[in-house]
Computed example of a mutant assay.
Amino acid sequence: MSLSRMKWEDLPMTVRRAVEAHTGPVTAASTTSGGFNSAIAATLHTRSGPVFCKGLPMDHRQIVTQRREREINPHVVGLSPRLLWHVEVDGWDLSGFEHINGRHADYRPGSDDLRLIVECLQRLQQVECPDLPLKQAEQRLRGYVTEPAEAEMFAGDALLHTDWNCANLLIKGRAYLVDWAWATRGAAWLDPAGWLVWLMAEGGHTAAQAEAWAGRIPSWPAAPADAVAAYAKANARLWAEIAQGRPDEWTSRTASAAGAWALYRAQQDQARVGC
């Protein structure tokens, strides 16, 4: 469920003063409309430059996602905006990040952004997964597989972002990966698999076109075909469940793309077996 987005001015004065102890006086604030994981998400304008601030009430059930993002940040410097400060005051948990004055990625066929995202994904797959209490891919997807053994196909030691919607890729000369709320440990090919569904949902790619882009990531061609098919089905079930609880156009479009890719994988498997 998405969170109601607050304005900077709606935060308690004590919380704003705690932030300004790090930033200096905030002269203006622009609220970000996108995203589902933060109650406050705003660019704070200060005399020393802009800062991106995001946060949640400390008693919110998703507070663990904020903490996970801070824990991950030192390990993805160069891929993601740098964490600058963190405050916990009067029931609020807020983090300040380096501000990237970029735009959201364009996922349409022919976009120059796609090459930049491939480079970003390739760099991420060279990062060693830190020793943090991350959810494991087989745990996250266990409820969406047909057989328990299928979930084990998703296990691995790679650091995964898992949420490759275009709002989480900022483009400014290169691609910056933001919002690590759902960081996971698992098989490296799962991130290219997740990305290709967004290429279909937000860029209008066919399944074959999207898989061709995923194929530029070395882990993808090495992925076992039966594991990919199992993931495609599990992901389609996951998105069908999300769409039932959040029947908006964006979610429905993503669920349709996930279903279309699962069908494509099933057809590919039938063709492979028939050869």
Score class of each variant (00 low, 15 high):
M6Y: 10
K7G: 08
D10V: 01
P12I: 01
V15M: 05
G24H: 05
T31K: 10
F36K: 11
A41R: 11
A41F: 14
P50W: 04
F52H: 12
G55K: 13
D59M: 03
T65A: 11
T65H: 09
E71S: 05
E71N: 11
I72T: 07
I72S: 11
P74Y: 03
L79R: 15
P81Y: 08
L83H: 14
V89N: 10
D93V: 12
E98C: 14
I100D: 03
S111G: 09
C120W: 04
Q125F: 03
V127Q: 12
C129I: 03
K135P: 13
R140Y: 08
L141C: 07
G143M: 10
E147K: 04
A151F: 15
A155Y: 10
G156M: 07
L159W: 14
H161V: 00
H161Y: 08
H161L: 04
D179I: 03
W180D: 04
G186F: 12
W189S: 05
A193C: 12
G194E: 08
L199N: 02
E202W: 01
H205N: 06
A207N: 13
W220G: 11
A236Y: 01
R246Q: 14
T251C: 13
S252T: 04
S252M: 11
W261H: 15
Q268P: 05
D269V: 13
G274S: 13
